[in-house]
């Protein structure tokens, strides 16, 4: 197994003095290739901080974050930006689609920022849209699509190219349960194909798709729910 994401004894405090909030206090996590890890916890438990650190959008006060074995602290700003563009895919609750760009252009954006020509990026974007069952929507603008379709465009953008790490913050947003489930199936499929993913959610039903669920409280991991050693016991229990 290869750890795609590692957090080692990570501490992060926001603010100073009396107003300081200890968002993470000594968090250690490994996420392997082919593994989906969900993070649950009440508001203010450090979930979003964890995701921001994992994606190199924020840096820890102490401890180390490694993506594909590379310590983020050792990377220059340029290298970090490159890593964020080609190795890490993000799905946020706010979709952050560019309203003046079509679905395909939105999906191709990270590739183009990474230096891929528009002509080469287009078929990759179309393939990613097909993966989220949006073939035929490539030339639509966000406001010409439903909330669920926009969400899938955001997922396609996170998955385009061969991103090895997908970070998702409440990716099903306010979607109805069927559409939300479709989004999780997509995430799961990408993980089963070899990516590593971290899913921050407050929905237990969504966390159920994960291989491991980490419970955060006040910046500390209080428990982890891994696979059952003997799943058949569940069936016995309900008998």
């Amino acid at each position: 197994m290869t750890a795609i994401l590692e957090l080692r004894e990570v501490h992060r405090t926001h603010g100073k003095g009396e107003a300081a909030v200890h968002a993470l206090r000594g968090v250690t996590i490994d996420v392997q290739a082919g593994e989906l890890v969900a993070v649950m916890g009440p508001s203010g438990s450090g979930k979003s901080t964890l995701l921001n650190l994992a994606g190199g959008l924020d840096s820890p006060d102490s401890g180390e974050v490694l993506v594909e074995g590379r310590p983020l602290s050792s990377l220059s700003r340029k290298e970090l930006a490159g890593l964020r563009r080609h190795s890490v895919g993000y799905v946020f609750q706010a979709l952050n689609l560019v309203p003046s760009l079509t679905a395909a252009e939105n999906v191709a954006l990270p590739l183009e920022l990474d230096g891929v020509s528009a002509r080469k990026a287009r078929p990759l974007a179309e393939a990613a849209l097909a993966e989220v069952e949006l073939s035929g929507y490539a030339d639509r603008f966000p406001d010409e699509m439903s909330g669920g379709q926009q969400q899938r465009v955001a997922i396609a953008r996170a998955l385009v190219g061969q991103r090895r790490l997908v970070l998702a913050d409440e990716p099903t947003g306010a979607l109805d349960s069927q559409t939300g489930e479709a989004v999780l199936r997509l995430l799961r499929a990408r993980v089963d194909a070899g990516a590593a993913a971290v899913l921050v959610t407050h929905e237990a039903r969504h966390a159920g798709w994960a291989d491991r669920v980490i419970f955060l409280r006040d910046g500390v991991i209080v428990d982890t729910s891994g696979p059952l050693a003997r799943p058949e016991q569940l069936l016995e229990a309900t008998a």
Binding site: M40, A204, R205, A207, G208, W209, A210, D211, V213, S225, G226, P227, L228, P231, L234
Partner: peptide, 8 residues
Amino acid sequence: MRALQEYT
């Protein structure tokens, strides 16, 4: 949660 993961 573990049970929920298994059902899923």
